[in-house]
Design a protein around this nucleic acid. Sequence first.
RNA 1: UCCCCGAUAGCUCAGCUGGUAGAGCGGGUGGCUGUUAACCACUAGGUCGCAGGUUCGAGUCCUGCUCGGGGAGCCA
Length: 460
Amino acid sequence: MIPHDDIRDVLNESGIGSDVTVYGWVRTARMGKNVAFASISDGSCQENLQVVLNRKSFDDDSLKGLATGAAVRVCGTVVESPGREQPREVHAEELEIIGPAPEDYPLQKKKHTMEFLRTIPHLRLRSGIFGAVFRMRHHLSIAIHRFFDERGFFYVHPPLITASDAEGAGETFQVTSLPLDAVPKRDGEVDYEQDYFRRKAFLSVSVQLETEPLALALGKVYTFGPTFRADPSDTRWHASEFWMIEPEMAFYDLSDSMELIEQFIGFIASYMLDRCRDEIAFLDERVDADVRDRYRMLTEEPFVRASYTEAVERLTEASNRFETRPRWGGGFSSEHERYLAGEVYGGPVFVTDYPAQAKPFYMRLNDDGKTAACTDLLFPEVGEIVGGSQREERLDLLQERIESMGIDREDYRWYVETRRWGTAPHSGFGLGFERLLMYLTGIDNIRDVIPFPRTLGRMV
RNA sequence: UCCCCGAUAGCUCAGCUGGUAGAGCGGGUGGCUGUUAACCACUAGGUCGCAGGUUCGAGUCCUGCUCGGGGAGCCA
C-alpha cells in the first residue's frame, strides 16, 4: 500500500511536527533564491497545501519538474506557516515527480474561460472550480439520500428502459438491437416483432409512472437516477443525460407534498452550508452569482404559496414588461417565472393549480373542474426547480382523461389498474438534480456541473 | 428548430473609418530576504477558424460553411 495522507487531513488534523506523505498535483510553483514554494492539491478539499522546499536540499532538475500540472509525491514535516494565506504548510524532505507536466499543459495558473475548459473535460476536473463543483455534487447526492432515509422513504429503482414514452415529458431515445442499416420490415413497416423486446422500447424520460405503484405498496419512496431525453433543446439548462429525483408518497395530498418539498430544500441547503463551507466560499468569490445569498434565501424565509390564477393576475399587472403576454390557460414563459420569484414574491414561490388542460393526464383534477392539483416551485433567477402534483386516484376520472387525450389505453393498462384495486390519494414531485446543483454552486451552464456532458450534437 | 453575438500567439484579449500584427499570462534564460495569480530584465512564439469575393492592398468589408456562446420555444 502506498502510504498516504490526504491534504484535507494534513491541513486540519495532523499535528504540528508530524511527518506526512502527500500525493497530488502542482497548482502553482514559485522559485526564490533560497526556497521554492509549491501549492499542491489532491482533490480531497478546496484548499491547496503549500509545500516549502529548501533549494540547497534539492537539485535544480527535480525543482524544475515542479511545474503546474505535475503529479508529485512530497514527504515532509507539518509546520505552522509564517505566511498569511495559510495557517500551516509542509517543509519538504523528499520530492518525487511522479507524472511530469510539460509546458504545453493546458491548465495554467490563471483564469480560464468556461468555454475553453469545456474543450478539455478530462483535465478541467483538476481546476479549483471543478473540484468545488464535483465535491459539492457528491455532498448533494448524500444529502438527498439522508433526507429521505431519515424520513422513512425507501430508495427504489424503476426501469430505465420502458415501453411507453411517459406521455409528453420529453422526446425519447429509442432502444433497439435491430441493425439500423438493414431494419427488418413487414408490409412496409418496421417489424418490431424481431426487435429485442418484441416491441418498441425507449430510454425512460421519467420513472414517475413506474414509481407510483411502488408508493402504493411501500408508502413513501424516491428515485434518484439518470434520465435520457432527446429534446431538440440546445440551451444552458438542457442535457441529454441528466439525473432526476422523483419522490412519490401514498396518502399525501398536494399540500403535504409542498411541505415536504420545502423541508427538503431547507435540509439540503443547511447540509451543504455545513459540509461545503470552503467550496461555497470559493465559488461565491469566483462565480458571477451571489451564491451565499441563495443559501440564506433557502434556509431563512418560508416559501410563498400562490395560485396560478393569482400569479397570472400579478403578471397581467406588469404585462408591458414582457415579450409574451401572460394569459390564463397558457403556461409561463421563463421571463414570467423569473419575474414571479424575483420581483413579485422575492424568493422561492410555489405556484399551484395550473389549468388542467395544459397538464398531463395523471394530475388530479380539482373540484372546480378546470385546474389540476399541481405545483411548480419557482426560484429567483432560474425559474422552475421542482414540479409536482397530486395524482389522479379516481378510476373513472383517470380513464376519462386518458380517453380525451387520445392516449393508447393498452399502454397504460397496468397504471390504471392501480386505481381499480385499493386506490389511494398520493402525490409526488420531480426535480432535476443538475439544475439544483447549478443553483447551489452558482454555475450557470449545466455542462459545467456534469463531468462529461452529453448534449444535443455534442459528446466530447 | 428559430433569432442575435463571436472566432487574432499555448491561454485571456487589444488591433479606430481597409495600408500585411500587439500586450498580459504561460514557456526559455538570468536576477531576486519566505513566496501567495510572487516580482524585475531579456527572449522565443502567429497560414488572424475554413472557402470564395470586392480592392492596388483584407485581421479589418461582403457571401457561404464550420465551430463556440447567449436568448426563444420545448422541457427537468
